[in-house]
Simulated assay, not measured.
Amino acid sequence: MLRKISPLLCGFSVAALSFFSSTATAQIKPASQFPTTELTAGIYLIKAEVAANEPDREQGLMYRTQLPANQGMLFIFEQPAGHCFWMKNTFLPLSIAFLADDGTIVNIERMAPQTENNHCPTQAVRFALEMNQGWFSEKGIKPGMRISGLPQPR
């Protein structure tokens, strides 16, 4: 059943949506406010911002226009699961490595900017590491190799 909405109510809804959209955008955490950790992949040092809570994981690298070389974002989840990622509102092409608890790379996916395609691990994981697209392949880093320096599960 379709219901007619008054123009006044419709105008209020648009204004409310605009307000909440701008408020949500204003709450985006700057890169400098994410905690960081150092990881290694073979001989390569990675400075990773850490997203270990729901709001930080939801924001991730959205709205960024650049990601310095050898920097990325480490996503930490409480439990291993099939944590999938998409690129809505993410302007950078990224590669994501899904990591087992011991740092072993389960699989690596390439992710195109501003898409809603799901990118999922091939097995349950607690960690995911996003880097500039092609970073892993350029360094010869493949599934089965390890990322060191991950926090130990409790």
Rank of each mutant, 00 (worst) to 15 (best):
G60P: 01
S18D: 05
L92M: 08
A81F: 07
Q79C: 00
A48R: 02
Q59N: 06
L45I: 05
A31T: 13
S22Q: 14
E38P: 01
P55G: 01
H83K: 07
I46V: 10
A31R: 12
R64L: 05
E49W: 08
I5K: 10
F20R: 07
S22E: 14
N89T: 07
R3D: 08
Q59P: 03
A48S: 06
L17E: 11
F85T: 11
A51Y: 00
T65A: 06
E58D: 13
S32M: 10
Q66C: 09
W86F: 11
F91C: 02
L45K: 09
S6D: 15
G60I: 03
K47P: 00
Y44L: 06
E49M: 13
A24R: 14
G42Y: 01
A26K: 11
P30R: 02
S21N: 13
I28V: 15
E49F: 07
L67V: 06
F75M: 08
N70I: 01
E38Y: 04
E58Q: 14
P93C: 04
G72H: 06
L45Y: 01
L39D: 05
A31N: 10
Q33R: 09
K29E: 14
C84L: 06
A41Y: 01
Q79A: 09
M62H: 04
K4S: 12
Y44N: 09
E54W: 01
I5T: 14
T90G: 02
F12W: 13
Q27M: 13
V14A: 12
L2P: 05
T37G: 00
A16C: 13
A16W: 10
R57T: 03
T36R: 11
P55K: 00
C84W: 05
D56Y: 04
Y63K: 10
N70P: 06
P93E: 11
G60M: 02
F19Q: 08
A52W: 02
K29W: 10
A26W: 12
G82R: 13
Q66A: 14
T37M: 06
A16P: 10
S13E: 06
F20N: 13
N89S: 10
I43C: 04
M62V: 05
M87N: 04
L8S: 13
S13V: 14
P55I: 02
S95Y: 03
C10A: 15
L61C: 04
G72Y: 03
K88S: 08
Q27I: 09
G72M: 05
Q66M: 11
N89K: 09
T65G: 12
W86L: 06
C84D: 12
T25Y: 15
I5F: 08
R3A: 08
L8G: 07
P7C: 05
L2F: 11
A41R: 03
P93F: 00
S6L: 10
S22H: 11
G60L: 05
I46K: 01
S21I: 15
S13N: 10
L67Y: 04
L92D: 08
D56V: 02
L2E: 15
S22R: 11
L94H: 03
A26T: 08
A48P: 00
T90R: 00
P7M: 05
S6K: 10
T90D: 10
A31Q: 12
W86P: 09
F20A: 12
E58W: 08
T90P: 03
S32K: 13
